[in-house]
């Protein structure tokens, strides 16, 4: 069986600074994976390389056996940390925009989710609160039939009720051919929905294990373990 993400000896340097060092990943389909680590641990760099937005200094990464590029962009649905959508657009126009860009965009799915959250199709992004904007973006990203969803800090700025909805959206959209890779430092909120966690520290994989393995071996939650590993 081939892996959805495979990386070998992946390294990234910015000048003298080693942002990623010898990352060897094997990630299968049908998983929900947490990419965890404090600020500056290399999460965003790794995500950018997987998305083909940055080149590694050494080593290589394959998405469905292909190097990041035009082909892999078709199967990756990416929620960046910062918004890239045009503020003046209405929700309706955003739907058109996604439909034009991505063959796998499912408009009806997006409309259902927008209705559930009482977001009007004629609402303008500019007039929305920060949390609502984040919800709209997540809905757009989750409405694609992608193989790999990469969500960079999807729950950072939203209130607990919206966080709950977002987590349910991720679970509800689960399918066994697709994997969700999400980065966050709000672990206690999300650890129940994760299969596996990858802890990054100083650009290296500190460990990669299933949530229940950690709880069984350590007798503590991933969140507690995280606090111990990264104690300042």
């Amino acid at each position: 069986m081939s892996y959805l993400i495979e990386s070998n000896h992946l390294c990234k340097k910015f000048g003298n600074k080693q942002a990623l060092a010898d990352i060897n990943l094997r990630i299968e389909r049908g998983r929900i994976i947490g990419l965890l680590g404090p600020n500056g641990s290399g999460k965003s760099t790794l995500i950018k390389i997987i998305n083909g937005l940055m080149m590694p200094t050494e080593g290589e990464v394959f998405i469905d056996e292909k190097k990041p590029g035009v082909e892999t962009k078709k199967i990756i649905s990416y929620l960046p940390e910062r918004t890239y959508l045009n503020e003046w657009m209405k929700v309706k126009e955003l739907l058109d925009y996604f439909e034009d860009f991505y063959e796998d965009f499912r408009r009806e799915r997006a409309i259902t989710m927008l209705e559930n959250l009482n977001i009007g199709l004629d609402d303008k992004l500019k007039t929305m609160s920060k949390g609502t904007k984040e919800k709209v973006q997540l809905i757009l990203v989750m409405s694609r039939d992608a193989d790999l969803y990469i969500l960079d800090e999807p729950i950072g700025g939203v209130d607990p009720a919206a966080r709950d909805y977002i987590l349910r959206t991720i679970i509800g959209n689960y399918n066994e051919n697709a994997t969700v890779l999400l980065s966050t430092h709000l672990i206690s909120d999300i650890e129940n929905i994760l299969d596996e966690v990858i802890f990054l520290q100083y650009g290296q994989i500190r460990f990669h294990a299933s949530v229940d393995e950690i709880r069984m071996k350590e007798g503590k939650s991933v969140d507690q373990l995280f606090r111990e590993v990264y104690r300042c």
Partner: peptide, 14 residues
């Protein structure tokens, strides 16, 4: 499975 997982707010594989 998916409905139960959503209700419980846990991973579907679990």
């Amino acid at each position: 499975v998916r409905e139960l997982a959503t209700e419980a707010a846990v991973n579907p594989n679990t």
